[in-house]
Amino acid sequence: MWMLVTIVTFFFARWVSRKFNTPIFNPLIISIAIIIPALIYFKVPFDTYYAENEWLSFALQPAVVALAYPLYEQLPQIRANWRIVTLACSVGSIMSMLTSTLIAISLKADITLIASLLGKSVTTPIAMEVSRNLGGEPAIAAILVLLVGLFGAILAYPIYNLLNITHPIAKGLTMGTVSHALGTATCAEKNGEDAAFSSLALVLCGVITSVLAPSFFTLALWLSA
């Protein structure tokens, strides 16, 4: 039953999003606003809901892999701009971890929260694993990833329009670096070139964050000592 509810809610959310054509009516926000109150009202445990949507969760894996297709289509551009791609993803990942660490320390956040913050700008599975390995809380990491992704999916293209940013490399790399899979999905709806570079940034930033997060966590321990 709940799998059918999820599917119907998704198509309804997509219809509303296209009808109003504004970033505020993001399909994910609409779906959350419908599903969560329904689960609370009918007193359905999350484990039950998740179990009934197991096949949909499984389908997410090939859906993510499908994002590699626009990446393949843009291989010549990627090869020609590999220095820009590498630099942008490296700087983006480092600044994301550095700023979150410094802000958390300045606010005297618990070290567990800092460990959960470090992976906030990469896709959920990587963020949760990074958090777990550093002694953080994977559930908090997942929530932070969702929030960051939503902000990017909602605000990125209005900001691009406001600042007159039109180049697909600039749009794709910033979206993938900051807003991971949710941002990449938004790019895929807007422009195939944007989606290709966003997919690439998503992967590269995931690798960079996984490698460097322990160093930033050590820095956080030293600064908060």
Rank of each mutant, 00 (worst) to 15 (best):
Ile29Thr: 14
Ile30Asn: 02
Ile32Gly: 08
Ile32Leu: 14
Ala33Phe: 11
Ile34His: 03
Ile34Pro: 01
Ile35His: 09
Ile35Trp: 12
Ile35Cys: 06
Pro37Glu: 06
Pro37Asp: 06
Leu39Glu: 11
Phe42Arg: 14
Val44Gln: 04
Asp47Arg: 13
Asp47Trp: 09
Thr48Ile: 08
Thr48Trp: 03
Thr48Asn: 10
Thr48Ala: 04
Glu54Ile: 07
Ser57Leu: 11
Ser57Gly: 14
Ser57Lys: 15
Ala59Asn: 02
Ala59Gly: 06
Pro62His: 03
Val64Lys: 00
Val65Asp: 01
Leu67Trp: 09
Pro70Ala: 07
Pro70Arg: 04
Tyr72Lys: 04
Tyr72Cys: 02
Leu75Gln: 01
Gln77Leu: 13
Ile78Gly: 06
Arg79Trp: 10
Arg79Val: 10
Ala80Glu: 06
Val85Ala: 09
Val85Glu: 02
Leu87Asn: 02
Cys89His: 08
Cys89Phe: 10
Gly92Ser: 09
Ser93Arg: 00
Ile94Phe: 02
Met95Val: 14
Met97Thr: 05
Ser100Leu: 09
Ser100Tyr: 02
Thr101Trp: 03
Ala104Leu: 14
Ala104His: 14
Ala104Phe: 13
Ile105Gln: 12
Ile105Trp: 13
Thr112Arg: 14
Thr112Trp: 03
Leu113Thr: 12
Ile114Ala: 10
Ser116Phe: 10
Ser116Tyr: 05
Leu117Ile: 02
Leu118Asp: 07
Leu118Arg: 11
Lys120Trp: 03
Ser121Leu: 13
Thr123Asn: 15
Thr124Trp: 09
Thr124Gln: 12
Pro125Asn: 13
Ile126His: 01
Ile126Lys: 00
Ala127Ile: 03
Val130Leu: 11
Val130Gln: 13
Ser131Arg: 10
Arg132Leu: 05
Asn133Gly: 05
Leu134Pro: 15
Leu134Lys: 05
Leu134Ile: 06
Gly135Thr: 03
Gly136His: 00
Gly136Cys: 09
Pro138Ser: 06
Pro138Asn: 01
Pro138Thr: 03
Ala142Asp: 00
Ile143Val: 14
Leu144Trp: 04
Leu146Met: 14
Val148Phe: 09
Val148Gln: 11
Val148Cys: 14
Gly149Thr: 07
Gly149Tyr: 10
Gly149Trp: 10
Leu150Ala: 09
Leu150His: 07
Ala153Lys: 02
Ile154Ser: 08
Leu155His: 00
Leu155Thr: 08
